[in-house]
């Protein structure tokens, strides 16, 4: 039963992933990407990573909504009317990504992966929590500083004066 669900979600995720670059409306591309992420979140719940799976769902919905705003704002040429990607680099891209795919899949199926070390804990979320607050604390600190740096630099880069009158007050 879990295998069937997995394969359904996997095919859906890849299908939506391909749809992102096939579809001709910006909003649809964004929601195709969102659907792909939701499927990935689903697969993670299958791996008993309930917390991380639902976290991906939560984060991705909010991110994709903000992305939809920017996509529509900046996609000056309506993708549906003026085809965007030129032909030559499409074929080149296809070849490169195809090669990468073949290489990766070959690697996946040939390497004999080591046996599992240890049993998954009863509650992976608690294990994650204790790790993040304990041994992996430096990781959280670095991530926190990275988020702060991104916030500051994004604001500096993006705002000039602010389109609302209140911007300069």
């Amino acid at each position: 039963m879990r295998t069937v669900v997995f394969w359904v979600l996997a095919l859906a995720a890849v299908g939506f992933g391909v749809a992102v670059f096939r579809v001709d409306s910006m909003a649809r591309a964004t929601f195709a990407l969102l659907a792909s992420f939701l499927c990935v979140g689903g697969t993670m719940v299958l791996l008993d990573l309930h917390y991380l799976g639902v976290l991906v769902v939560l984060m991705m919905i909010m991110e994709m909504m903000v992305m939809a705003v920017f996509m529509i704002m900046y996609m000056m040429n309506p993708a549906g009317l003026m085809p965007m990607s030129m032909l030559h680099n499409r074929r080149g891209a296809l070849i490169i990504s195809g090669a990468v795919l073949v290489a990766l899949v070959a690697g996946v199926w040939t390497v004999d992966w080591p046996e599992r070390a240890g049993r998954p804990p009863g509650d992976p979320t608690r294990a994650l929590g204790e790790a993040v607050m304990g041994a992996q604390m430096p990781v959280m600190i670095v991530v926190g500083v990275a988020i702060l740096a991104t916030m500051v630099s994004a604001v500096v880069l993006a705002t000039d004066r602010g389109r609302y009158d209140g911007g300069d007050r």
């Binding site: 929601f31 969102l34 719940v45 309930h50 917390y51 799976g53 639902v54 976290l55 769902v57 939560l58 919905i61 909010m62 994709m64 909504m65 509650d123 979320t125």
Partner: peptide, 18 residues
């Protein structure tokens, strides 16, 4: 995922944005 009800509740609220 009942062990993480609160996160699930929060995730389902955000669907209203969409």
């Amino acid at each position: 995922p009942w062990s993480i009800g609160v996160v699930w509740f929060n995730a389902m609220e955000v669907v209203a944005w969409v």
